[in-house]
Amino acid sequence: MARIIVITSGKGGVGKTTTTANLGMALAKRRRKVVVVDADFGLRNLDLLLGLENRVVYTAVEVLAGQCRLEQALVKDKRFNNLALLPAAQNRTKEAVTPDQMKQLVNALARVYEYILIDCPAGIEMGFQNAIAAAKEAVIVTTPEISAVRDADRVIGLLEANNVKQIQLLINRIKPAMVQANDMMSVADVQEILAVKLLGVIPDDEKVIVSTNKGEPLVLSETPSQAGTAFDNVVRRLEGEPVPFMDLTVRDEGLLSRLRRILSNRA
């Protein structure tokens, strides 16, 4: 049985596409047959993050219109040929396809691939409805901000109402130093509101920006990065391996200042 996972958030700019790209690539590294589906019609980005932009010939809309076969639209990754991308049409809008059509597409893919990751657009309108139509599981991406958490909460409610019951949480772009200074919501704060299973915590990392611009997901990088390792861990957890959560406490802190902090927190 293929696992059909939608990556969604409600709010924009929290890292859905980055997450999709990295999870897809990390799964491919583990020799899984993976297809990543860009459901963001009209504002497609996933091909950029994977560095596959210049290989896109056909898109999902052409497949649905019968202008090409599904296999023709799939873009094989240049590094791992067990990873494929189904690009979204850039010249159309979210209303171009219906939830039923998305279901058809994804179910066709499910016969061939082990993992289908669907990159959901921001918002809860047609694009969202399309993206979740075929999904059996969801990964909710949120950042530790009150607005992102509120939107994530709404989206979880909508997913539950649409029979996507297996929902896991990925907290992105956390800054451990700010959390320790009590300037940012902590993982526990976010979990308290959303009350869904935690799949992973990705620390804020400037390398993400570099990798995005290069079209090379972080998990491929030779030099290990914190965010890249965190994505690798997320994939291992997705596959059912118990992986302890990364220690994200700030280390370059002397014993004295740590003592002082503990004392001041008590007061």
Partner: peptide, 24 residues
């Protein structure tokens, strides 16, 4: 149920919720 953001319950009577009312 947990009432998540965006959920609204209207009732012409008393309401008992077993679960949280989240913000929103």
């Amino acid at each position: 149920m947990t009432l998540r953001s965006g959920t609204e319950i209207r009732h012409n009577g008393t309401v008992v919720v077993l679960g949280d009312l989240n913000p929103g």
